[in-house]
Design a protein around this nucleic acid. Structure first.
Length: 294
DNA sequence: CACTTGACCTGTCCGC
DNA sequence: TGCGGACAGGTCAAGT
């Protein structure tokens, strides 16, 4: 669901729609997901103008000229959908997967002074929104621990390998999903990049060669970039800032393709459970390497 | 320390 | 048709 490419797609959409808009009203009644007080919201959000929309890991940052920021995590079923005045109250625009808003999973509604609105929807309520002083954002627990951005210029194959080798005793899929190792990878892109590098998800890092880790790095960067290009992966819930679905899953090689042939060797793809997650592999291309003594 | 499991939620799907 | 249970999978906390 929302992993790095999906959150980046939302960011790109919002960055084209939000900057310059002034917040006129905020409707929320969700203390668990959006714990700020009414007074906080009135003082630092209402009346403020959006200056930028950024992303770090799977977290969106909407910066305001009040020197506060909205910090938003979509977790599994979160959506941020913008509706301009022309759409509002008149059904949903063409191509949107989402119907009339607000709906029963709308948790927060931001209304701008021109009448346009931004809806935060989250069926399962795992997501969250925080209003924080912008200077305090890097200090939140998650950002203190999270690893490097995989698409940053300085995140080389060497940097990737060096960080993975610190977790030599762990299973590779668990390591890829660990946000403190590398930011932004979730279940979809872990499976896709492991398939690309022909690595079994249960392999211990120590048993994977440097060459294979280099292939994994290359595969990861490739699937992340391709997915951003395709607007992310829509399985059930994920939509972009305009409520539209992403098409990456059309290009997926293993994810959610159990029972179908491996695009490389035609062997039937199977689904396993690894690190508590549904995990998709080609049992021919991806085999557990022999254990190395350590 | 590292790994696994459960919790957080709601909606959907499957079998009986 | 109704109903219970499994499942979806990001992150944190607690347990082994």
């Amino acid at each position: 669901m929302p992993e790095l490419p999906e959150v980046e797609t939302v960011r790109i959409g919002l960055a084209a729609l939000l900057p310059g808009r002034r917040v006129a009203a905020v409707d929320f009644d969700w203390p668990k997901g959006f714990p700020n007080s009414d007074a906080d919201v009135q003082a630092h959000l209402v009346g403020a103008r959006i200056s930028a929309v950024k992303r770090r890991a799977k977290v969106l940052l909407i910066e305001l000229d009040s020197e506060y920021s909205l910090v938003i995590h979509l977790k599994m079923t979160g959506q941020l959908v913008f509706r301009g005045e022309q759409h509002f109250g008149a059904g949903h625009p063409n191509g949107s997967l989402v119907g009339e808003l607000p709906d029963k999973s709308t948790r927060v509604t931001f209304t701008f002074e021109d009448g346009s609105k931004l809806f935060f929807n989250d069926q399962r309520k795992f997501g969250w929104v925080r209003l924080l002083p912008t200077v305090e954002v890097p200090a939140i627990d998650f950002f203190q621990k999270v690893g490097p951005e995989p698409l940053a210029d300085d995140f080389t194959a060497e940097a990737f390998t060096e960080r993975l080798r610190r977790r030599n005793n762990s299973g590779i899929k668990a390591v890829l999903l660990d946000q403190t190792v590398v930011a932004g990878i979730g279940n979809i892109y872990a499976d896709e990049s492991l398939w690309a590098a022909k690595i079994h998800p249960l392999s211990h890092v120590r048993d994977i060669s440097d060459t294979q880790l280099r292939d994994l790095y290359a595969g990861l960067i490739k699937v992340l970039k391709l997915s951003i290009e395709k607007g992310g992966s829509t399985d059930r819930n994920y939509v972009d800032a305009e409520g539209k679905r992403g098409s990456y899953l059309t290009f997926a090689n293993v994810f959610r393709r159990e029972g179908k042939p491996c695009p490389r060797c035609q062997t039937t793809i199977v689904k396993l459970r690894v690190a508590g997650r549904g995990t998709h592999i080609c049992p021919h291309c991806q085999v557990v390497p022999p254990e190395k003594k350590s």
